[in-house]
Nucleic acid binder design. Structure first.
Length: 749
DNA sequence: AATCCGTCTATTTTT
DNA sequence: TAGACGGATT
């Protein structure tokens, strides 16, 4: 068929092989910029249009909503079908869909609420308080980590291995958190995964239904999957189905949040992948940039092995620059930005990347002073804003009044005379009666009881509004009735918050419109199918179509926190961490702060495999650049209010010398002491510290030294005098050491 | 109920 | 240095 031919046109042989592989499971090693998304979407189009599968037989999983949206849009552009007929979404989104459809079997109320990390932490704190456990014996954040990592490993509280009293306590708290969530109909992110995993593993008919249905399972960013997600996929992949996994082990940078690169090798072995397809042709960067990336990553031992190449020319060599201070590094970047602008690049074609968010300050300052428009990624997202969460808490209560997380949030905001005392009494009453806070309202008498009763009536009013009004009407009236509108209207800085609440109404309007579209139009096929599923597996339960718009909207708000960027649209230079740059590309890229201790980050060096992950991070950074790449570091940097003297990152020495261009003399890895007057970012106090640091032993803060065992380093602090004089020294490999000057064989360099 | 003050911490982040 | 948080104060 000619349409199919047209899809396949222009694919390189490896891409073509991946797209049209028709037997068994497939592992695609997709290098940066190798057209991975194109392969995924083209394969889906090929499967459907070539008659290999129907849209209903396809399940495609991504990590972010953005990636899912992109996939849906691109398929929509290729095929005349409604892509919503397919199950395409994030792991969490798909699990949500599954659990709503089969909430009975999953032992959840139909309108279960999803807790984001913030909500989860609040729930944990509340549980700790109820259990009477001291925050110091069990820091809430650590318990949260403990619970989430257990769940992500597929473990329930009872399955966690206990060694010692501390563990026992934590496991008990884990258990009571689980009970609390179950009682209140709350599901955290990890629970979405675990609960649907358990649902499928325990319910054989349901499992085989979905196994037979999903003939083709496609997974994006496979290197980022965690242990539970891998098991989930394995469970869903029945006999005769094909799993198509796309990933790049060299871009695995999320181990710290549970990603398990080993899944790639496990997949190859356990699914008996006969052929691993490597996509190595890069369509993004010029040759010298790719050579830099290839050489750098070749220093990693743990690799599946892959080398990027391009059919385009060599292009410019990446430029390396050594600055005396972070301030001067920033000024140099601004100057390069100017030159690039003169050469015709728009600010939005350029990005400045850094390892940690704290580094953005100096850069922002320099850009602001030079009047370069810029935009910083990161920070609060729309649905995470306090005012939005407050409004959502009321909406959640309208949907499920027994959601104590939302109750606790809403009950006294805006203030309505229900203080900590009253709340404690209510908590006790609820704990005694084993019921929700809302259900316990009646048990309190007196003035406090009256205030609570009034709040209870508010919830009931919202509930009835929810059953009569349209979603946008409900959102608007909730903002009014809750008193949030009045509260923010009376606040000095409340205007912006009011606007955000207005925006929430708009969001609900467009959400409702989209849902309506999906339910009608070509989505009829999926609706019919979903109904069939209902008839077979959830007899008596509400069908998917009956999940109320409010419930759907609340799930949407939890699962998609909204844009992560400040003001968009305008032509601005992009500032972001290397992590958030993954998946993006720019004509010009600046990678900053290439200093030992910062990049690679010192905290990573103590973790096994940490250095290799840092190196992959650098690899990701380099491969973001299309034409121009600038890599820089500073001898002195203001960090936590103190000037830190850094050594050039080892990563710079791992780049191919013939493919890069040093703008500053490339010395041995020992910077000269920095004259403070060259370091405008340093506080005035630094001057006196440094002047005072010159002592009779002849060492000075910022001084380069060499130690027979630890190698090259820089003095970062001096204390004591005479025979007791000590120096703290930042070594390249060995990290920070404190040495007695009288004893240590330090050589001045 | 709002505000102030001392303490603590500071890598990366999506769902 | 700066920001977030919790406890105490007004």
């Amino acid at each position: 068929m000619s349409t199919v031919q047209r899809f396949l046109e222009g694919l390189n042989p490896q891409q073509l092989a991946a797209v049209t592989e028709s037997t068994g499971h497939v592992l695609v090693l997709a290098g940066a910029g190798s057209g991975k998304t194109r392969v995924l979407t083209t394969r889906i189009a090929w499967l459907i249009h070539g008659g290999h599968a129907s849209a209903l037989q396809i399940l495609a999983v991504t990590f972010t909503n953005k990636a899912a949206r992109e996939m849906i849009d691109r398929i929509g552009a290729m095929l005349p079908i409604n892509p919503r007929a397919m199950w395409i979404g994030t792991f969490h989104g798909l699990c949500n869909r599954l659990l709503r459809l089969h909430h009975r079997d999953a032992q959840l109320p139909q309108g279960f609420q999803i807790l984001d990390s913030q909500d989860q932490l609040a729930a944990i704190k509340r549980m700790l308080k109820a259990a009477g456990v001291d925050d110091t014996r069990c820091p809430p954040r650590e318990l949260q980590m403990f619970i989430n990592s257990a769940k992500e490993a597929g473990l329930r509280a009872r399955e966690v291995e206990v060694n010692g009293g501390r563990d026992r306590l934590w496991v008990e708290l884990f258990e009571s958190y689980e009970r609390q969530c179950q009682r209140e109909g709350l599901v955290d992110f990890a629970e979405l995964l675990l609960r649907s995993y358990e649902l499928l593993s325990r319910n054989e008919p349901l499992r085989s239904h979905y196994q037979q249905r999903f003939r083709h399972i496609l997974v994006d960013e496979f290197q980022d999957t965690n242990v539970l997600q891998y098991r989930w996929l394995k469970l869903l992949a029945g006999p005769g189905s094909s799993v198509f996994a796309v990933g790049d082990d060299d871009q695995s940078i999320y181990r710290f949040r549970g990603a398990h690169v080993g899944n790639m090798a496990d997949f190859e072995r356990e699914f008996q992948v006969s052929q691993v397809i490597k996509l190595e042709q890069n369509y993004r960067s010029y040759g010298h940039i790719l050579e830099a990336a290839n050489r750098l990553i070749s220093h990693n031992a743990q690799r599946l092995g892959k080398n990027l190449w391009t059919a385009e020319g060599q292009g410019e060599r990446p430029v390396l620059f050594e600055a005396a201070s972070d301030g001067l590094e920033a000024s140099w970047i601004v100057e390069q930005v100017r030159q690039l602008s003169d050469a015709g690049l728009r600010p939005s074609d350029m990005a400045i990347l850094y390892r940690s968010n704290a580094q953005s300050r100096v850069l922002e300052h320099a850009l602001f002073t030079a009047a370069v428009p810029y935009r910083v990624y990161g920070g609060l997202r729309f649905f995470e804003r306090a005012e939005i969460k407050n409004a959502l808490a009321y909406l959640r209560l309208a949907s499920n009044p027994h959601d104590d997380v939302s109750f606790a949030r809403a009950v006294n905001f805006p203030a309505r005379g229900i203080g900590t005392r009253t709340l404690e009494q209510l908590q006790d009453a609820a704990a005694g009666a084993q019921c929700s806070l809302y259900a316990a309202i009646g048990s309190l008498a007196g003035r406090a009881g009256a205030s609570l009763a009034q709040f209870g009536r508010l919830i009931e009013a919202l509930q009835s509004a929810a059953s009569t009004q349209s979603l946008p009407e409900l959102v608007a009236s909730t903002i009014q009735q809750s008193g949030l509108a009045a509260h923010y209207a009376g606040e000095r800085e409340g205007q912006e918050r009011l606007e955000n609440l207005e925006e929430l109404v708009n969001a609900s309007t467009s959400f409702a419109a989209e849902q309506g579209y999906a339910a009608s139009a070509a989505g009829a096929a999926s609706a019919a199918e979903a109904d069939a599923e209902q008839a077979a597996f959830a007899a008596g339960a509400a069908s998917a179509a009956e999940v109320s718009p409010l419930t759907a909207f609340l799930a949407h708000a939890s699962l998609e926190a909204g844009d992560n960027q400040a003001g968009q649209g305008q032509d601005a230079l992009q500032l972001m961490t290397v992590h958030s740059a993954k998946g993006l590309e720019f004509d010009a890229v600046f990678i900053t702060g290439l200093e030992e201790g910062l990049f690679p980050h010192e905290n990573s060096l103590s973790e096994g495999g940490g250095l290799e992950e840092e190196r992959r991070l650098m690899y990701v950074a380099i491969t973001r650049a299309r034409k121009h790449l600038f890599v820089s570091f500073a001898q002195a940097r203001l960090l936590h209010g103190q000037t830190r003297y850094g050594i050039r990152s080892r990563f710079l020495d791992e780049l191919p010398p013939e493919s890069v261009r040093w703008l500053t003399p490339r010395r041995s890895r020992m910077p000269e002491p920095v004259p403070y007057w060259n370091a405008p970012a340093a506080p005035r106090g630094a001057m006196s510290t440094q002047a005072a640091a010159v002592a009779h032993h002849g060492f000075q803060v910022g001084q380069s030294v060499r130690h027979p065992k630890f190698g090259d380093g820089v003095v970062i602090r001096l204390q004591g005098a005479g025979g007791d004089a000590r120096a703290q020294i930042q070594f390249g490999q060995a990290g920070i050491k404190e040495l007695l000057l009288a004893v240590a064989k330090l050589e001045r360099a």
